[in-house]
Every structure is written in structure tokens, then in C-alpha cells.
Amino acid sequence: MKTVLSLTLLALSSFGVYAQNEEDDLMGMFDNEEVTNYTSATFKTTRLALGYSVENPAKQDLIFLISHHFGAVNTGAYEMFGLDQATIRIGFEYGITGRLTAGIGRSSYNKTYDSYLKYKLLRQSTGSSNMPVTVNLVTGINYITLRNDYPEQGYYTSNRINYLFQVLIARKFTKNFSAQIMPSLIHNNLVPTAKDKNDKFALGIGGRYKVSNRISVNAEYHYLFPNQVVSYEIKNSLTLGMDIETGGHVFQLFFTNSVQLNPLDFITNTTGDWTSGNFFFGFNVTRTFTLR
């Protein structure tokens, strides 16, 4: 009899608890629903500032990207502090799948055509599958079409071609702060002297901090390991900028000491110097078109 009494009491008391927040209890059925939560929007667009970010366009989205630099700020009032000069790149990026991107572009610097593939190898996620970082692989090739001023020296088509291999590793630490590191290997078929290396290694680091839902400040720095470019003076590329998002457009405004607009060019060829005012104002404008 004692057991029955205690059982009844137990049943009644648990019933009482149940009645108190029965709706929460019903909701509790779904507490263990584990889904993989993929991190989205680590960066606002496919460029950190000058270089690639881990963002890919969605499947069958086309991004039209105009990048533009003015001249050096220290050219003075005569050149309107650089505004009279311009370097421009016009490019398209297309999402073959959500993880594989193909891009093409044309830069006024050295009259260069470039193309690249970007593949999202890993996606940062929490929940039923945990991954701390997003990783993209980038491979690019460019072709310089600037006229050969010394035809008597002989000039091979291969001399005009350069290659880029890059790994982008990024993590969205908080909803506002994301960081990315990017080891790069650049192969130049033609270098100025025999002492200059054809294969050049660099390590980039960058990040963004969102100051509001639609505005972020960005920074990007590429360290070129020493003794690879020796025949002329080289600087590491440093870019400071901000992203402004307005619906289908993202505007990226920045100051940089790189005159080139293509990662394949600026990582190994930056000559601008922040300390002497030899840096440039520039911007990217991206527009996304959904082709589906």
C-alpha cells in the first residue's frame, strides 16, 4: 500500500509541475533538434578590400565589380591630390555553384586580363557539425597585353603570363568581427633580373568590424617574404577601408599603397609608401544580379 501511495504522490506531483508550464514542456520536445548552422556573411562581399574574401556569389548569381583607384595623394593640388589620375578594373564573378566561383576581369594596369576560380572547401558551422573556419582555395592566371617596347629582345607569349595560388582561411568570431589569413604563392614567368625569384610567397591578414548593420571598417595587409624581389624596392600592401551596403550594391571605399587592383599584381608589386603620402584613394562598387 505504501508503494502505491508514494507512486500516486509522485504521479500527482509530476502532473502538478507539468501543469505549471505545460507549454514550455511541449516546446521542450524540440530542444534537441540539432541542425547544422552554417555561418553566413563572414564578409559583406567577395572582396576584403583589394583582395579576395571567403564569400562566394550564390549559385547562378552574377556580380559586376568595378574597382577604381585615383592617383597618389601626395601629387598635390595640381593633380587634385590624385583625382586626375585613374586605374580601373572591370570584372565579373559568377557562381557556378554556391561553392565554386569563376571570375574574369580587365585592368588598365599593364592592360591585363585576369581570370580565377575560387572554391569553398570548408564552411564554418556550429550545431550538429562543428567547423571553426571557412576555407577557400583560389587559383588565378593573368595575361599582360601591354605592347613590347623592345621587340628586338624577343618576347614570348609565356612572358606575359602569371599565376596565383591562394588559400583563404576566415572565421566570423562575432556577428561584427571577422578575420582572414591568406597565404599566397605567386609565380611570375618573367622577372626583371636573374636574382629575382619567379616563385614568391606572401602571407596576408585582414578583417572587418561592423559598426552598424550596413557599414563595416576593413583592413588588409600582405607581407611579402624578404629576398624574393631584389632588383627594385618593394613595399608590403596595406589597405584600410570601409564597406557600405545598400540592398543589391556594396560600396567599398579605401586608402591603399597599392596602385594595382588585382591580387596577382599588387601582392608582389606594391611600390607606394604610406609614410611619404604615396598612397591612393579608391573604391569598389559591386552589383549582384540573380540570373535564375
Partner: peptide, 17 residues
């Protein structure tokens, strides 16, 4: 996050902004 939009960009803005 399980809402699906016609445009991926809309989905991103919906979740982010």
C-alpha cells in the same frame, strides 16, 4: 535561418540586417 528566398542576397540581408 531556414526561410528560403528567391534571391540569395535577400536571404542574407533578412538574416543579417
Amino acid at each position: 535561418k531556414s526561410f528560403r528566398f528567391e534571391k540569395a542576397l535577400m536571404e542574407e540581408h533578412f538574416n543579417e540586417n
